[in-house]
Simulated assay, not measured.
Amino acid sequence: MTPEALVNQTDTLLSFPDVALRLNRLIDEPATRPSDLAEVIICDPGLSARLLRLVNSALYARPQPVATVSQAIGLIGYRALRELVIATCTVDMFKGLSRQQVDMERFWLHGIACAIAVRHLAGHCGPHDGERLFLAGLLHSLGKLIFFTQCADAYAEVLRLVEQDGLAVDKAEQRVFGFDYADLGAELLKHWDFPESIWSPVAHHLDPAKAAEHRIEAEILHAAARIAQIVQVAVLADSVVPTEDNCEALCKLAERLGMEPDALIDLPGAINLQILEVFEILVPGSTLVY
């Protein structure tokens, strides 16, 4: 089995809704106007409401409230609009999974924490595209969902290797399948026609040194995923103060990124409220973080 074969096998399960596909096509057409995009979005009231809530959230920190979809498009631009719509549709795509397969609320809490962390880190590490990396952060673990839903029996062996032999999850996946969730997630993003600047960091975020292209973006995503782990545990424990071990790990990551250690150590607390706000918008009705 290969990542490509597994993604092709799940093609009908992992198909974007029509609204996302229509927006994608329109955004790629040079003659498209904001009003054209607004017409598509307002046909989906749920998507319209969540888009406006996201644009008015702390993620964008707008000085004045944004009241209409057209206004939102004008303020954030076409590419950011595409990424927000993809984020919303991707969350919806997997919301039917049972808790026995995977705890989706915890999964998306981690993804949203990674997305917001990577957006902040991109600003600290030079002129990198924080909006595009936001999407890479949100979707960096999608390969796990394919494993959980399509390979449940074989994945039980991965869990056994993790619990009984102490292997890291990705090492256990490599042993059982010959590839890991990062490889699988990157293949899915390729299948969805995402640019290399998104799928390549996802493919290499577990080991950025192996990235032939987009190495610094993979390093940023690697650090953001670690911060997301810290934030996820902290939110569930109602505390955002990193432990001593986490501070040591963050100092090492800061050195790799050329950042001041305090900037990375303080980041989990600085972005905590943004994470909770975006989580409540993208995963409405959750009781996980109250």
Rank of each mutant, 00 (worst) to 15 (best):
R62V: 04
T68Y: 07
V69E: 04
G111K: 03
A38T: 06
L59E: 08
N246Q: 14
Y290G: 14
A122Q: 04
D11V: 13
A218I: 04
L159E: 08
T10K: 06
S200K: 14
R226N: 08
V233E: 14
W108R: 03
H204T: 07
F179C: 01
A228T: 03
M259G: 00
A254Q: 04
D238C: 02
P284Q: 07
C114S: 13
A182T: 06
P17C: 02
Q174E: 15
K190S: 10
T149L: 06
T90K: 08
F177K: 02
A263P: 13
Y60N: 14
E196R: 15
Y181H: 10
T2C: 04
P195Y: 06
A263D: 14
G46E: 15
Q101N: 04
P261F: 00
M1L: 10
L189Q: 07
A270E: 09
L142C: 08
R160H: 11
L161I: 13
W192V: 00
C125L: 10
A154I: 00
R33N: 14
I220L: 11
D183L: 06
C125G: 08
I41A: 02
E213Y: 12
S48I: 09
L6Q: 10
E83N: 14
A225N: 11
N272D: 02
I281F: 02
V66T: 10
A212M: 07
H205L: 03
S98P: 10
A186I: 00
I42W: 15
D262A: 14
T12H: 11
D153R: 15
A115R: 08
L51A: 05
A234T: 12
E187H: 03
V66S: 05
A182P: 05
A67S: 08
G258I: 05
Q150P: 02
D207E: 14
K252Q: 13
I230G: 02
Q274L: 13
E244H: 11
R119H: 15
I227C: 09
L121K: 05
V289P: 02
I146T: 01
P127Q: 15
I275M: 07
I86R: 01
I281N: 05
